[in-house]
Design a protein around this nucleic acid. Structure first.
Lengths: 336, 336
DNA sequence: TTGTATATTGGAAACGTTTCCAATCTATAT
DNA sequence: ATATAGATTGGAAACGTTTCCAATATACAA
């Protein structure tokens, strides 16, 4: 069933049918009705490949990320796709396989599917100008890393959380409660992760406060799941280094750590204060409830989509947006 | 940059370039190399619309669901998309707006994008045979509801969790621990929800054990979030009806309930046993850890994708698969 | 009635591929 | 050298739309 069949059975030309489909003005009421009825009757749906082909564009937006499993991005993805759908775009997910250059993959995707734009989840600002120029479409870096800052502010858009500041604020909070010996629990610091940024901010706050950091208090978990955090905390405790507080770079790790502390006979917050990051809903209900820095995830997603849509539709130019994680006080921190 | 440009700059025909692109055998080594180099050099990427158009098919699979926000499906979605990508298909998300017939929307999508297949998340087996036939492509109902059972087993495929059995098993577990006065905490029973199925199974187990159910022990929360569960548990406690155990239809609700109990001075499991459903990772680490029925989410997703891929690729016919939630013993239940 | 302006229509090219078929090469056997 | 089979190649149609342009129908004024 094609546009041609509809034309044939209505006794009009394909042009007319096409005009009806696209709400073009110059078509008589009579013809329009006839065509619409035939479309209804035959359950005709225009083929989007053909349309995209001739229009030289699609209504698709690429979502490019390195992998979904176990990731922070897995939570971002559904609402992001939802928002794009609501805005009239079709999200196209694309996973980068390890060993593949993500910008090249993104550029390929953009050309193959004639994308309107791209959201690069967990990208970086270390791309070269040539690389981003090769995309040819608007793009937004969402929760990107930035070590070299190759791009000028007018050359890219980004929406991110200030992870470094979050680490800094967490350390400040514990310092202000009188803690000096603070352990930090993080997942693999490799590949310039969010974890590393928080860790850098944390260190900076200690330095500024004149508190030397004991490397024995750095607990880097090999795996990023709760089990890894739990085991790493046990090791930390077994090592015997004294600490009165622990900063975990995620809520789930914090909860696992609390259990490890609990099993070692150290109660929270009486014997050890704990601070997490993320602000997952559960942290209000655990016993004790967790003091945590709430990630504005919803805002992150909305802002990223809005920024991209604005760029696509020509409203405003590139912009970088940084969102803050705000502390939410629970029962897991006590004043020393 | 099109196939034509490549052909031109290599001095070969478009046919040859196309053959190279598709790994057709009949092309000389010399020509192949020349073309590959030109493709590399010009960063050429074939246009998928044109390809789909002439091939009369795409590599896309539709994921159709009613809405993502706050939903069980939001968790299923990322791994499902991932698995489809891994299997060589492009997932295309499609959200059904309220007031729209989902099968009709699915059929439209399938035709417009020439989908290879469909996964209907939260569909039903109450579709008519004509409706499903109109899809024209293989489909899998994932966690579907089934009140009329219009379709014969060879007319549809489905992968689902036996929610009724989960409720039944949860009640059995508590009964076997000597509990007789068991409260149940569920979210809105409206619209034939998972919640209702678990509640039905729960009731059946009580009946079979000859334990009359006190309606005062039914706590139906208006909202499905943790806050609703927390408040509803408080109300239950305030009402003063005695109970020694509580069955929450989800882990998050169970955790919220435990906090409410805790705040009311009732410790778990000493004063009240609690059982949840879902088996989210966190339940191993909360204090106390939670006894819960673990949803085989990963298996659910894998099975749904595998089933669809099998159907698409002609391996085997329609099948219905029901997965069981297995109990995981935590510290939240005690023997009376 | 005729002419003119305007509304509506149809024809055909174009979008970028794939694939069938026929044509041309190349190599081998006679 | 010639015939023949097989490998390789190019030409052209086809996929289902949109859109430009020219052609026709309609309405209205003179």
């Amino acid at each position: 069933m094609t546009i041609k069949d509809i034309a044939l059975c209505c006794g009009v030309s394909v042009s007319t049918v096409s005009r009806v489909l696209n709400n073009h003005p110059n078509v008589s009421e009579k013809a329009r009705e006839k065509v619409l009825r035939a479309i209804q009757e035959h359950h005709f749906v225009p083929n989007s490949s053909a349309r995209d082909l001739v229009k030289l564009e699609s209504d698709s937006v690429g979502l490019v990320l390195r992998g979904i499993a176990n990731s922070f991005f897995a939570e971002l993805l559904p609402p992001m796709e939802q928002l794009l759908l609501d805005a009239g775009y079709t999200p196209i997910l694309h996973q980068i396989h390890s060993g593949t250059d993500e910008l090249e993959a993104a550029a390929r995707l953009a050309r193959a599917k004639r994308l309107k734009g791209l959201i690069l989840l967990g990208g970086s600002n270390d791309y070269s100008r040539e690389q981003t120029a090769a995309l040819k479409v608007p793009f937004v870096l969402c929760t990107y890393t930035n070590s070299f800052g190759n791009l000028a502010p007018n050359q890219y858009s980004s929406v991110t959380i200030d992870d470094r500041k979050t680490g800094y604020d967490a350390a400040r909070l514990l310092l202000e409660h009188g803690h000096r010996r603070i352990a930090i629990l993080l997942d693999s610091v490799r590949d310039r992760s969010v974890s590393e940024l928080r860790w850098m901010g944390f260190r900076q706050a200690l330095e500024e406060a004149g508190v030397p950091f004991d490397p024995a208090l750095l607990a880097e978990s090999v795996s990023f799941d709760m089990d890894g955090a739990y085991r790493r905390t046990k090791e930390l405790l077994a090592a015997g280094t004294a600490f009165t507080a622990l900063f975990a770079v995620s809520d789930t790790m914090a909860i696992a750590a609390i259990r490890a502390l609990h099993e070692a006979g150290r109660s929270v917050p009486a014997d050890c204060s704990v601070v997490g990051v993320d602000g997952i809903a559960l942290t209000r209900y655990t016993i004790p409830s967790l003091t945590t820095f709430v990630q504005p995830q919803k805002e992150l997603v909305c802002t990223a989509v809005r920024t991209l849509v604005d760029l696509i539709e020509g409203r405003g130019g590139n912009r970088q947006i940084v969102l803050d994680a705000a502390p939410r006080r629970g029962q897991s921190v006590r004043q020393l």
